[in-house]
Amino acid sequence: MHKQSFGGGDAMSLLSSTTRGTITRATLTKDIRLEWRSKDALNSMLFFSLLVVVIFSLSFDPLAEESRRIAGGLVWVAFLFAAVVALNQTWARELRNQVLDAYRVSPAPPNALFMAKALGNFFIVSLLEALMTPLFIIFYNLRALGPAWQLIPIGLLGTWALVVNGTFFAAISLRTRSRELMLPLLLFPISIPAVLGMVAGTTAILTGENSAHFWIVLLLTYDVVFTTACLALFEKVLEAE
């Protein structure tokens, strides 16, 4: 009797890497289309982050000079919380009617599903950030004293850092008893260096006192390390039953 194997190579070797790309793209288009039809995640997240902006601005009275020092922290904490709202929605659609089972019985590699979900979340959270940043600039009278263009790599790398682990831990927490509660509990400790990188990098640019280079490199390292880890381990999570 042969040994039952669920491990890494088998499922992946069933399809070539080009089809993996096709599957990722198909899943991503499907998700974006479904999101566009319902707009569940986007609406709730937009409103949530608007609330965060308003409540934060009520809690103190920022002068331009002072807000520059704290804005980095505020902006990223707001994005972090808003991202958790979106990330919790990631797998909800796959649980309804147990569609995830249909994916799992197919020869499609789990990696492709993960990549599609992470890219979808990246897209949504970036969109949200693009909409919220002007609000922050207006409410807190922000103007960067350092090289402002560096905020773009920090934004992109930081968002990916949140989203890639967020998608992974959302998949873990959906197998636990209190799903929505579990996600931030797992995600936040692991995200501490990334959050520090985003906050410190943004502050460095806003105040113009330090260089943000170290933080960009740190975020890049974080992204590379954890994207690899997620892709390597996602199958173990999806097949854990």
């Binding site: 873990i172 797992l186 692991i190 954890f226 381990l233 173990k236 999570v237 854990a240």
Partner: peptide
């Protein structure tokens, strides 16, 4: 399996 993945992370 889930905990092992988290430990590696």
């Amino acid at each position: 399996a889930l905990a092992a993945a988290l430990a590696i992370f």
